[in-house]
């Protein structure tokens, strides 16, 4: 896949998006007036305290939640149509591998459901596992792998059917910081190679700044966007970029945005 960065074609477009849950304590505004365009090839991080709607927004894009107001399109289609067109791969906080399937078997799961031929399943599973550097682990079972390796396998599973969009909901949240650093670096390389539009939910400021081309800062009650930061960092990012002046400036701005959100409520 080539890098179509200059095309700047809009992949995800939300206008005045709203989602209200009715609960026993009255309505909860999970999302209110969220307007956001995400261009092809972008790496967009969503950051904010819990309850700010960052995961809810991702779930709306994946058609796992239905918005109660506003409009949302994915690749110019409704989220539900986009799902059927296999527009995205979703990576959850837990790897969620099936313990009764081998690693290759887990990566084949979406391919089986989508009806790929057996030969193509094997080929794609091999290729996706290679991308996350898990070649040679095809026949292992999930419990034989470390937490970080399991999460890499779940990323391979999301990549297997070549969706344009990668939705990641705190994929490294449960991992320790050393493993997380390495996976961040690998994810960035992967993103550079595949040019997949990536929506990444996190509550770690360094993670968001290190990975993203754009950072969406959100705040709770009601869940809304308080700041959108376009990162001036280059696309090639070694780990020590985190000590640079630009990096620290962006991190500062994100922190400010988060603090501002808290003053409001």
């Amino acid at each position: 896949m080539t890098n179509g960065g200059e095309l700047a074609e809009t992949v995800v477009s939300a206008k005045n998006l709203e989602l209200t849950f009715q609960t026993g304590d009255g309505p909860v505004h999970a999302l209110k007036d969220v307007t956001l365009d995400i261009a092809h090839g972008d790496f967009v991080s969503f950051i904010g305290p819990s309850g700010c709607g960052k995961t809810t927004f991702l779930r709306c894009v994946a058609a796992l939640e239905t918005p109660t107001g506003g409009s949302l399109t994915v690749n110019g289609m409704s989220p539900d149509q986009a799902r059927r067109a296999r527009a995205y791969g979703y990576v959850f906080q837990a790897a969620g591998l099936y313990p009764w399937r081998t690693i290759a078997g887990n990566v084949r799961l979406p391919l089986e459901i989508m009806g790929f031929s057996r030969q193509e399943q094997d080929e794609r599973a091999r290729r996706s596992l290679e991308m996350v550097e898990l070649s040679g682990f095809e026949k292992k079972y999930p419990w034989q792998l470390s937490g970080g390796m399991q999460q890499r396998a779940s990323i391979a599973r999301a990549l297997a059917f070549d969706a344009d969009i990668l939705l990641m909901d705190e994929p490294f949240g449960a991992l320790d910081e050393i493993v997380r650093d390495r996976l961040n670096e690998e994810l960035l390389k992967l993103w550079g190679r595949t040019a997949k539009t990536t929506l990444f939910v996190t509550h770690s400021i360094p993670e968001a700044v290190y990975l993203s081309t754009r950072i969406v800062v959100m705040s709770p009650r009601p869940g809304r966007i308080t700041d959108i930061i376009d990162s001036p960092l280059p696309r090639e990012r070694p780990l020590d970029i985190r000590d640079s002046k630009e990096f620290i400036e962006i991190a500062h701005r994100v922190r400010e945005g988060l603090r501002a959100g808290h003053v409001d409520d």
Partner: peptide, 12 residues
């Protein structure tokens, strides 16, 4: 719920 959601993202 997560495993059910996962399958639903594949349109299973």
């Amino acid at each position: 719920a997560m495993q059910i959601d996962l399958l639903s993202t594949y349109g299973a």
